[in-house]
Design a protein around this nucleic acid. Structure first.
Length: 104
DNA sequence: CCCATGACTAATT
DNA sequence: AAATTAGCCATGG
């Protein structure tokens, strides 16, 4: 369905289940086939018009760092913890086990 | 069309 | 392991 880049990103974000996270790069890979558009993905979610409803707080950096959030990083960390994700020094604990993959 | 921007990434130091 | 650097891409002016 012909959608713009931002909508495609947001639709993917909606599929991330509570208690899991994915990365900007993974979303970029899902859309373009490589991680190169990670920054564009970040820009897209940064303009997310419905935070919470569209769980962009579940999108973190490739190194496990929580990354940024339009409502403040502290808010992002709070939301993640509320979903059972442990955060230590701004990083997701058990990062690999917490990762969600779209597998096509 | 050119240029700046940013919730990034991988590699290097 | 933390900080720096160069590369990348979708927008908006």
């Amino acid at each position: 369905m012909g959608e713009n880049f931002q909508d495609t990103v947001l639709n993917l974000v909606k599929r991330i289940p509570a208690g899991k996270v994915t990365t900007y790069g993974e979303i970029a890979r899902e859309i373009t086939g490589s991680v190169r558009a990670a920054r564009a993905v970040a820009r897209a979610v940064a303009r997310n018009p419905y935070p919470i409803a569209i769980p962009c707080h579940r999108v973190v950096r490739s190194d496990g760092d929580v990354g940024g959030y339009s409502l403040g990083v502290e808010k992002k960390i709070k939301l993640l913890k509320a979903e059972g994700i442990e955060i230590k020094r701004r990083k997701v604990a058990n990062f690999e086990q917490t990762l969600f993959f779209f597998n096509f």
